[in-house]
């Protein structure tokens, strides 16, 4: 299942946040959205996930999701969004209950996703007992449980320290290599983008427009920490963004 962004523009009041964004998101690939703060990249992700409506333009779904897919467009949020009163297992089970999946069938799915995210030993723990990295792994497990056609990751690692982030990126690459999934990954961190993105879309500062599209052909499993080739791409992207990031930083907030 592909996603097509068709001429998307958006306004918050009089402020134009996005201008005429058109782009296809191919299935089985990870597309990274990068850009200076306030360029509307998270807003664009919420349009794709149907949590907000653009002022102009449409988000289209091309093809139908596989039949075993419970929630085609599934988010992983920056703040994890785990229910603090439910255990790790309960948090995963939450998204299955509404699809009528209970009992043995649910247990099988839950055990499988917890194993894939290395959380099997913590299934009874409450979120308050978990570290930030583990909380995000629970959120990823929860997303995997509904078998998404497209994963929408909204700065998933920005609340974590850089070491945890590094570990989780490795985990994400392993997950993708074992079973490729489609993902839109919003980040402001170029290192994450060059490690995880098959395609990197650079948005300009407000109003966000597509500034540059960079394809990286190297397979994910071959990209390693501080890889010189990736480093070159990262520098190139940063040169593109630097002035805009500075200008965005000096902009006054419209509150």
């Amino acid at each position: 299942m592909d996603i097509r962004l068709d001429g998307i523009s958006h306004f918050y009041g009089a402020t134009e946040v996005l201008r005429d964004v058109t782009q296809d998101i191919p299935s089985g690939k990870i597309v990274c959205l990068v850009g200076p703060s306030g360029c509307g990249k998270s807003t664009l992700l919420r349009f794709i996930g149907g949590l907000e409506r653009p002022s102009k333009g449409r988000v289209l779904q091309l093809g139908i999701p596989p039949s075993d897919c419970l929630n085609p467009l599934t988010f992983v949020f920056q703040d994890f969004s785990l229910l603090p009163w439910r255990s790790v297992r309960g948090n995963v089970s939450l998204v299955l209950e509404d699809h009528g999946i209970r009992g043995k069938k649910a247990q099988t799915i839950i055990n499988d996703v917890l194993r894939r995210t290395k959380l099997s030993d913590f299934s009874r723990a409450l979120p308050k007992q978990l570290s930030g990295g583990m909380k995000q792994r629970v959120a990823i497990a929860r997303a995997l449980a509904v078998n998404p056609a497209v994963m929408l990751l909204d700065e998933p690692f920005s609340a974590l320290d850089s070491q945890t982030c590094e570990l989780l990126m490795d985990d994400l690459i392993t997950l993708w290599t074992r079973q490729p999934f489609t993902a839109v990954y919003v980040t402001h961190n170029l290192t994450e983008a060059v490690r995880l993105g098959h395609r990197i879309i650079v948005l300009s500062r407000r109003p966000g427009m597509i500034h540059e599209i960079k394809e990286i052909d190297r397979p994910l499993s071959e990209r390693s920490y501080a890889d010189p080739e990736l480093e070159t791409i990262r520098k190139e992207l940063w040169e593109l963004m630097r002035e805009e990031a500075r200008a965005a930083d000096e902009e006054l907030q419209h509150v």
Binding site: G49, L51, L70, N71, L73, T74, F75, F77, D79, S81, L83, W85, L94, V95, E97, D98, R142, V146
Partner: peptide, 24 residues
């Protein structure tokens, strides 16, 4: 509110969101 957003993003029904997220 972010928990409610999460519930909506997973396609939970209105009643489920009230019972499993809002009430607790």
């Amino acid at each position: 509110r972010s928990l409610i957003r999460m519930g909506q993003s997973f396609g939970l029904s209105w009643f489920s969101i009230v019972r499993k997220i809002v009430l607790p």
